[in-house]
């Protein structure tokens, strides 16, 4: 059992290894409040012999996708992480969920929203090494009652080249094992720093929203309210399920927060660009 931000999880497994890996990487995280969890994740063998023969980890829990493909046991840690994300994506109803990484400074939050491969996790992890407080690399939790964004600082999921980038930039940090050949390439998890964990119950006021794209030459583009709104509905897993609350929450966010789309060709200039826009706009 563990708590990430406001969300408690209980993770059960037919095998010992994934639980051991999780217990190690999440060892500094608190327990769920009252010992009662928001979501259960269960890693199981879909057929009894798959526990032992070419063991395959199926991701289950309170909420499941019908046709999820199992992962090999060596990627059990990834399965657990995906299981937690899945519960959030399918069933979180307390907060509006946006696919975005979030970092904080002086109580104000910077949201980076983009498709997989846009560099959300990499930029957030690098900002963490530069004195920002990491609030999460996957989901921004926006409270419909207050408009504040809550932290969900799970393990940072680094993929392919960004693993080496962060090993260079955050040499002292703790990393999980290298998970080679996953459906998303090579993955290595980075444990958020002590500040991120210690301050995870403190929400932030959203102050800047960026839509990064990795690859093209550096560019900054203004994004209109309508486009921002539509992009964020697409970046949200529960906008429709929240009904009117989702609409009101998103409308407030779009009205209150400056927005830019940015292109960056390498991480160093990307970080410089993000910090410059923060100084100018936030």
């Amino acid at each position: 059992m563990l708590r990430i931000g406001p969300v408690g999880f209980r993770i059960g497994s037919d095998w010992r290894a994934p639980i051991g890996a999780l217990g190690d990487l999440y060892r500094d995280y608190p327990l769920p409040e009252d010992g009662i969890v928001d979501f259960n994740v269960r890693l199981f063998a879909a057929r009894p012999w798959r526990r032992f023969v070419r063991p395959a980890v199926t991701i289950g829990g309170d909420y499941m996708l019908p046709d999820a493909l199992p992962l090999p046991l060596a990627q059990g840690l990834l399965a657990a992480e995906m299981g937690m994300n899945l519960q959030m994506a399918l069933a979180q109803r307390r907060y509006l969920l946006l696919h975005a990484s979030v970092v904080e400074r002086d109580g104000r939050g910077l949201l980076l929203s983009g498709v997989s491969g846009a560099g959300k996790s990499t930029l957030a992890a690098l900002l963490m090494t530069r004195g920002w407080r990491l609030m999460g690399d996957e989901f921004a939790l926006v409270d419909p009652a207050t408009g504040l964004v809550h932290a969900f600082p799970r393990l940072i999921s680094l993929k392919n080249q960004s693993v080496a980038v962060l090993q260079c930039a955050a040499g002292q940090a703790r990393f999980g094992p290298l998970l080679a050949g996953t459906p998303k390439g090579d993955i290595r998890h980075l444990v958020p720093d002590a500040t991120a964990i210690a301050a995870m119950d403190r929400p932030a006021v959203p102050a800047l929203l960026l839509f990064p794209t990795f690859g093209p030459a550096e560019a900054v583009r203004a994004v209109g309210a309508a486009e921002t709104f539509v992009r964020l509905t697409q970046a949200s897993t529960n906008y429709v399920a929240l009904g009117e609350r989702g609409f009101a929450t998103l409308r407030r966010l779009v009205q209150d927060v400056p927005v830019r789309a940015i292109d960056y060709a390498d991480t160093d200039s990307g970080i410089a660009l993000v910090e410059r826009l923060w100084r100018e706009l936030a």
């Binding site: 408690g8 409040e33 969890v37 928001d38 307390r94 399920a241 009904g243 609350r245």
Partner: peptide
């Protein structure tokens, strides 16, 4: 009931109400 359980139940009530409207 414990606050953590009360929050989960409050979420479930809001969710069911949204389901009713839909």
């Amino acid at each position: 009931i414990p606050p953590a359980a009360a929050r989960i139940m409050a979420d479930a009530r809001v969710s069911a109400e949204q389901g009713r409207v839909a």
